[in-house]
Design a binder for these strands. Structure first.
Lengths: 200, 200
DNA sequence: AGGGCGATGTCTGCGGCTGTCATCAAATAG
DNA sequence: CTATTTGATGACAGCCGCAGACATCGCCCT
C-alpha cells in the first residue's frame, strides 16, 4: 500500500456529489469535501480547477466517445445523422448507470452556477463534434449548425428522460426528438402570407 | 441635482466594460469598477449580483423584444418561423449599435466565466421563447426544440457576423443560417445503408 | 545507498461577495 | 412648515473560493 490512498480524484468526486446532494452545493465548502475524502482543501484544488468542476469528473471520456462515434459513421451519412448516432452512443452509455446520472442532474439543476458550467460543457461537446464533422469534410457552417443543434436536442431530450422516471429508452427518445425536430424545421413557411416573415 | 449622480447602474456597466476591455476581466476588481464610477464596492454588489452580471446589463429588454416578436407572428406561422422572426428582430436591434456589441463580444470571448454566463443567458432566452411558443399553442416538445435550436443558430450566426467585420446584414445572415439548417436537417438519411443508424 | 520525482500538507494572502448598521437627502404625511 | 418615512449609499467586519510558495516524504531509478 502506498503512502496515500489511491484514486484521490475519484474519492473527491464521490464525496463532493454526496455532500452536494445531502446539504446543497452552496452549503458545502471545499475543505469539507476534502476532509470527507481524507485530504486537505489545497489538494482538492490541485485536482479540480474549482468547486464546480468536480461534478463533471469523467465527462472527458464522453468527448472521446463522441469523436469516435462521429468518425465511425458511414461515409455516406449526412452530418445530422452522424451527430445523431454520436448522441445515441452517449445516451446508451449514460443509461447504463442511470442512478448517478439522475443524482447529478438533480444537484446541477438546483444551482445556477452548476447549470452554467453544464452549459459550458455542452458547448465544448458541440465544438468537439463540429471539429469531428469538419474532419469528415462537412463545411464549417453546416458542421457548427449540426453540432449545436444536436447538443440542444440532447439537452431537451435528457430532461424529458429524467422527468419520465427513466423508464424510457434514452437512445430511442433521442431518435424521436431528432425526427420531431426534422418535422418542425420542415414545417416552416407553410401557408404564411407573402409579406411575412419580413425581408426577402 | 440630487444627493448622488443619477443612473448608478448604467455608470457601473459602462465603467466595467471599459475596464474589462482595457485590462481584462480577471485583472479588474469590483472595487476598481466602483471607484471608477464614483461609488463603493458594496454599492456595486447592490446593483449587480456578481462581477459577471454587469456585462449583461440591458439584456432583459431583449427578452421583451423576443416575446413580443413571437407573439406578433401571424397565427399561421409555424414555430420555427416565429422564432426566426424573433431572432431577426433582435439581430436588427443589435445591429443598430454594432460597436458596443463587438466590444462586449471580445470581452466575453476572452474569458471562460463570461462565456459560461453568456450561455446561461441564451438558456434564459430559449426558455422564454419556448414559453411564448406554448402561448401560441405549440406543443411542449416542438416549442422547446424550436427555441433551443433557434438560439443555437443565433449564436453560430452572430459569431460569423462578428468575424465578417460586421459588413454584413445580421438579419439577412440569420435567414441564411436558418435556410442552411433546414437543408442540413432535411438531408439526413440520404443514401445510408439500412443497417445504420443503429436502432429501428 | 543515494538522489530525483510526484503527490500531499502547511501557511499565507487576495479578491469576490454578504450581513449589518449608520447616514442623509428627497419624498411624503400631518 | 415640520416630522416621519423611505431609499440609495457608505463604512466595517467577516467567510469562503482559490492560488503561490515551500516543506515533507514515500517511491522509483540508478
Amino acid at each position: 500500500m502506498g503512502r496515500w490512498e489511491p484514486n484521490a480524484r475519484g474519492r473527491l468526486a464521490k464525496a463532493a456529489l454526496t455532500l452536494y446532494a445531502e446539504q446543497g452545493f452552496e452549503q458545502t465548502t471545499a475543505a469539507e469535501i476534502a476532509r470527507s475524502a481524507g485530504l486537505t482543501e489545497r489538494t482538492f484544488f490541485r485536482h479540480f480547477a474549482d468547486k464546480r468542476e468536480v461534478l463533471f469528473y469523467g465527462s472527458d471520456s464522453l468527448l472521446d466517445l463522441l469523436v469516435q462515434a462521429v468518425a465511425d459513421a458511414p461515409p455516406a451519412a449526412g452530418p445530422v445523422d452522424a451527430v445523431s448516432a454520436a448522441l445515441q452512443a452517449v445516451g446508451a452509455m449514460i443509461q447504463e448507470t442511470p442512478e448517478p446520472a439522475r443524482l447529478r442532474y438533480a444537484v446541477v439543476s438546483a444551482n445556477q452556477e452548476l447549470r452554467e458550467r453544464e452549459l459550458a460543457k455542452f458547448g465544448e461537446f458541440a465544438a468537439t463534434i463540429a471539429a469531428a464533422l469538419r474532419d469528415r469534410g462537412v463545411p464549417e457552417l453546416a458542421a457548427s449548425l449540426a453540432a449545436e443543434t444536436g447538443t440542444a436536442v440532447y439537452r431537451v431530450t435528457f430532461a424529458r428522460w429524467i422527468a419520465g422516471q427513466a423508464q424510457l429508452d434514452l437512445p430511442e427518445l433521442l431518435r424521436e426528438s431528432m425526427a420531431e425536430l426534422r418535422d418542425v424545421v420542415a414545417d416552416r413557411l407553410l401557408s404564411s402570407p407573402a409579406s411575412w416573415p419580413p425581408g426577402r
